[in-house]
Design a protein around this nucleic acid. Structure first.
Ligand SMILES: [Mn+2]
Ligand SMILES: [Mn+2]
Ligand SMILES: [Zn+2]
Ligand SMILES: [Zn+2]
Lengths: 138, 138
DNA sequence: CTCCTGGTTGATAACTATTATCCGCTAGTA
DNA sequence: TACTAGCGGATAATAGTTATCAACCAGGAG
C-alpha cells in the first residue's frame, strides 16, 4: 500500500489512505458519493471532490477498478484482479462473479481490433429483489 | 414498426418514427445528442428532450437497446437481438460483436441471483486507434 | 371529415454526477 | 525545522439527463 504510492511517486495522504481503506472494507461496489457518506463521520472535513480525485488517482495507479453501472453513477471496487459482475436491475446491487472460465473468452473477430481485456456483465434480480417480485406476483 | 406501437397503445408520431429510423440507419451506437445533431437538419424543430424521451419510450417497448459506455454517455442501438460489444478506449468507438458462443455463458453461481441475460464488453483499441498508437511508439 | 381529448412536443428550468478552479496547507525531503 | 511541489477543501462550472408545462397533434368517436 504505502509501497505502491512511493513507487508511483505520489504522496500518501490521510485522505487517500482513508478512501482506499473504506473501499477495501466494503464489498458493495460503492459510488464516490456513497464512500463520501461513509467517511465523513470519521473525517468531517473530508470533501466530496477529494473522494472523486482520490478514486481517479487510485484508478490510475491500478489500485482500484471501476464498474460502469447502468445508473449513470460509476461504482468502484478495491478488487483489481480480473472478475465479473452480476447487477440487480431492481435495486442496483452489484455482486462479484469469480469464474475463471469467463476470463478466457475468445477475442472479438472484429478486424484490426486490439483487445486489452473484457468483462461480463450479468443482469437480473438479486436474491432479495427476486423474493419481493415473487410476492407481488401472488 | 407501426404495428409495435399500435400493440403497445402508444401513438406513433413523426418524431418517434424519425428517431427510430435514424438510429436504425446508423451502426455506430450513437448517443442521444449525436442522434439529435443528425436529425435536426431534416427536422429543425425537433427538441433534444424529445430525443431522450423517445429513446426511453423505444427502449421500454423493447425496440432499441442501450449500451452503457464508460464515458458516462449512454449509447443506443437499434439491434435488440443478443449481441456483444468491443469498445475502443481511445476514441470511444463501439463495434458489434456477434458470436453465439458468447451468448451461452454459464449463469453466475451467486446464490439466489435470477439471471435475465448478460453482455460481454471487450475493451481495447479499434483498428484506427491501434495504428495511431503504433506511430507514436516509433 | 370534423371534433375531442389525452398523450406528446418543444422550450427551458432543474437536477445529478463529475470536473475545474484556486488558495491555504501538508507530505516528503534534506 | 524549513522548503516546496503537490494536495485538500470549498465552491463554481460543466455535461448529461430529467422534470415542468403550455401549446399541439394522433387517433378515435361521431
Ligand atoms: Mn467487483
Ligand atoms: Mn450493438
Ligand atoms: Zn436487488
Ligand atoms: Zn478508436
Amino acid at each position: 500500500m504505502r509501497e505502491s504510492f512511493r513507487k508511483a511517486g505520489v504522496p500518501l495522504t490521510h485522505q487517500r489512505l482513508a478512501v482506499y481503506e473504506e473501499l477495501a472494507a466494503r464489498h458493495d461496489h460503492p459510488s464516490a458519493e456513497s464512500l463520501y457518506e461513509s467517511l465523513r463521520k470519521a473525517y468531517p472535513s473530508l470533501s466530496l471532490a477529494t473522494v472523486y480525485k482520490t478514486l481517479q488517482t487510485l484508478h490510475t495507479l491500478g489500485m482500484v477498478s471501476r464498474v460502469d453501472s447502468p445508473t449513470a453513477q460509476a461504482r468502484y471496487d478495491a478488487i483489481v484482479a480480473t472478475h465479473h459482475h452480476a447487477v440487480c436491475t431492481a435495486c442496483g446491487k452489484i455482486e462479484d462473479v469469480f469464474d475463471p472460465s469467463l476470463d478466457r473468452l475468445s477475442a472479438p473477430k472484429t478486424a484490426g481490433f486490439v483487445p486489452a481485456g473484457h468483462s461480463v456483465h450479468f443482469h437480473g434480480l438479486c436474491a432479495k429483489c427476486a423474493k419481493t417480485t415473487d410476492k407481488k406476483k401472488k
